[in-house]
Structures are given as C-alpha cells and as structure tokens.
Amino acid sequence: MGGGGRTIPALLVTLAVLLAVHPMLPGWAVNMVGLSLANGLAVLGLLVIMRAGLVSFGHGLYFGLGSYGAAMAATFLGVTDAFLMIAIGMASAALVAFVLGFLMARYRGIFFALLNLAFSMLLYGLLVNSAVLGSTDGFSMPIPSYLGYAPVDATSRVSFLLYALICVLAFAAALVVHRYLQSTMGYIGEGIRENEVRVEYLGASVRRAIHIKYVIAAAITGLGGVLTVLLIGHVTPEDTVYWTKSGELVFVAILSGTGSVAAPFLGSMLFELVRTYALQYAPDLWQMLLGATLLAVIMFLPGGLWSVVRLARRKA
C-alpha cells in the first residue's frame, strides 16, 4: 500500500506513452500490447479477490462469459457497437458472479478454488456441447462499430481505435481498483486475508464483503474477456473457460504480485512477450519455463515482480 500516491500519476504517464507510441509500433507489437492489456485486466480482476486471500482456479469462467457474451451479442443478436458489446460482456460476467457469489462467499482456501473450477468446467461442458456455438472450434464475430462510426479501412484505423479503447479502459479499471483498494471496503479485504474472525468481531460482514469483491472481480475479468475477443475476432471454449486458461490467469497474478494495480499489466506484458518468442523458438519448453518460473517466484519472490519494482523505487 506504500507509494499509493504515485500510482495514479504513473498510470497516467503510461497511458499517454502507450497512446503516443502507437504510430511507431509495428502491427504485431500493437496487437501484443493490446492483448497484454486485455489479459492484464483479467488478472486485475483476480487480484481483487486475491487481496482478500482467495484464489480462484476457475476465473476463466468470467473471462469466457465476457468473451462469449460479447461475441454472441455480435453474431447472434446483431449488436454492432463495441461499447454495447462491452456492457453486455461485463454484465453477463457480473450477473453470473452475483448469483454464484451467494454460494462462493461461504467458501475459503482450496474449496473456494475448486468450486470455481467446477463452475468453469460446467460452462466449458455447456459450450463444447453447443453445436450452434461451434463447440470446440468456437465461432468468429463481425468487426464492431464505435458509437455509430463504422471504420471502412479494416486495418490501420480499426486497430488504433480499438488499441486506444483498450488502453483507456485498462487505465480506467486500474484507477477504479486502486481507489477501491484504498477504501474501507478494500481494507476489509486485507483484513479478511489476515484474520476473518477479527473482521466479524469488528462488526463487518465477511460474506457480504467477499460477495462484493467477487462480483467486481468477475466484471473486470469479463471486461478483459470482451476486449480479447474484440482484438482476436474469434472465441473458443479452450482459450477462454478451460481450466488451463484459469491456471494461466493465476500464474500471471502470482508472477506479477498483488502489491499494486499496475503489477498485473506489467506481468501480463512480460508473459505475452516471452510467450511469443518461446512458442516460436522452443515450443516444447514453454510450459517447463512457466513451471520453473512459478517455482522460482513462489520460493524466492513471494511478492512477485512488483516487489522488485518496489525495491528499485525505494533505492531510487
């Protein structure tokens, strides 16, 4: 929580830089930054509950609800506006989280993790059995318009609009979560992680707090899912709700550390960068690299990459 005062200016500067460098970036880099930020949002959602000591092994459920919600709205309901898709995707994730939250708020530790896993696998089972949704192959969605503006040239301008949208939304979400973590409700999360009994004995409802956090986490992860599908234009069950996706989100969260709202984006950026190269040059060593990194972080860097940043800042 230290250095909280510098987070917002630092995020603003980053946003400005990301928007300014767009013309200089090659296409693949634009895509990579966009994907990293979208995935970073998904991890940011996870961070909200991890700060309260809860790890979900099925957070792909909400990533997938965001992706599928938006893509289905576009393909089957004829929704063309990107903002409407975002609203629909986030609302689907939040709504399901609100309902499931009554249940999840009763569980902790591995039970919380596994119950989330179970529900994500239920959605997976549903999706792979839906022929109309292309089962395991998924389906593609049309290119969206932005508040009535439909880009004609489907390459450069679309990508800047979408890129800028992703940057701004990532910034906005980071800001909201940052404020949230500094609020009483945010601190109650710290309390729940550290000692639930005391939180109840101070007069706050642990279940209610977890429920609220769970819905916020789902909505933000859902946003990440929507933005990913807007970028890729295609959605499959395996890339969104399968447990390996949930595992990836947890991996990036642990790698990044939960010390700051900037951490998930940093970790996600590094993850995408390494993945791009690893899959190209040593595809059979990628998972080994992930596993070794995870072990190294758990053993030697419990605060994740963010603790390195914090240390560097303290020395500076």
Partner: peptide, 11 residues
Amino acid sequence: GIAAETGITFW
C-alpha cells in the same frame, strides 16, 4: 473504518 462505516465505502 468499519466502526465509522456509513454509505458508500468503495470509493
């Protein structure tokens, strides 16, 4: 904060 909790405490 918990003792003083009034209204919106998220922001």
